[in-house]
């Protein structure tokens, strides 16, 4: 097991501690993703000046405001588009996008699929807590069927997106899933995603006790209960390979689901630029 960096070190190096406490509700999953991102950055010894976080609108996007790292807090859903632009201008940067499911899959769904299609070398981490937390608990495109939310008080009939499958279909070259409970694995997944040269997508199943848990007690009401539910309902990709579709229903399959190498977009486009600069049409 790789070393866990002491929290005191992380706080001193990365946080503006005067901005704490966070705005999050007790037991929220946003903080766990924050831990995983910072642990991975520190473990990889990335130059903090070469790391840019691009955060979406929503509870999860608020993590970056507590940090000393550069960040762009951009229009709702547009984080992958802004990150794409930044990577094209500054391919030397490590760009990490942090979004929630509403931001990434609904309002910014279009930006997400096209960033994946281009295989632009950014890391996109989507906290999937099954709900629009910040706007008051409306269902999102990943809310499970039958869920109760403020916009589906009698139960939801929309089938949810399976985000990782969507990303595979859209052309992402690295696709992984983790949970807040499996925090050690999550750090490894973030590290692998950052190291991946093309578009890396990481879905994190995360608790939103306030807007989802309270209304849908079967997956836990409080933070600890929701983490316990994740613990009991997760299956590693290795184990899942030997399980039937039936027995996998309702399970969270964790680990690296796809990892392949294709030309990275900003590098490929640099060659187009070179050709154009030589003049004439090739």
């Amino acid at each position: 097991m790789a070393k866990i960096i002491p929290q005191a070190t992380i706080l001193e190096k990365y946080f503006v501690t005067s901005t704490l406490p966070t705005q999050w509700c007790p037991g929220c999953g946003a903080g766990g993703i924050g831990h995983a991102v910072l642990q991975a950055i520190e473990r990889m010894q990335l130059d903090p000046k070469k790391v840019v976080l691009v955060s979406g609108i929503g509870c999860n996007g608020h993590f970056t405001r507590h940090l000393r790292l550069d960040d762009l807090h951009v229009l709702h859903g547009r984080a992958p588009a802004v990150a794409t632009g930044l990577k094209m201008a500054r391919p030397d940067l490590e760009i990490i996008v942090i979004q929630g499911d509403g931001d990434a899959a609904s309002i910014g769904g279009n930006h997400l699929i096209h960033a994946a299609r281009r295989n632009i070398g950014i890391t996109t981490i989507v906290s999937n807590n099954y709900i629009y937390g910040r706007t008051g608990g409306q269902y999102s495109p990943t809310t499970p069927k039958k869920s109760i939310s403020t916009s589906s008080p009698f139960g939801l009939e929309d089938p949810p997106f399976e985000l990782c499958n969507l990303m595979v279909g859209a052309g992402a070259t690295f696709v992984a899933r983790g949970t807040s409970y499996h925090i050690i694995q999550l750090i490894d997944l973030v590290e692998r995603a950052i190291k991946h040269p093309g578009f890396a997508f990481l879905e994190v199943i995360a608790p939103c006790p306030t807007s989802y848990g309270r209304k849908n007690p079967e997956t836990g009401i409080t933070g600890p209960q929701m983490l316990q539910w994740q613990k009991e309902n997760s299956v590693s990709i290795k184990k899942a390979a030997h399980m039937s579709e039936e027995s996998l229903r309702g399970k969270i399959v964790t680990g690296i689901l796809l990892d392949r190498i294709e030309p990275e977009y900003s590098a490929a486009y640099a060659k187009v630029r070179q050709r154009a600069q030589k003049g004439g049409l090739a």
């Binding site: 866990i4 929290q7 037991g27 929220c28 766990g32 831990h35 925090i183």
Partner: peptide, 14 residues
């Protein structure tokens, strides 16, 4: 250090 890593508020220090 699991408590440090899982604390959503970065509040535990070991």
């Amino acid at each position: 250090r699991l408590c440090e890593l899982r604390c959503p508020e970065f509040a535990v220090i070991i």
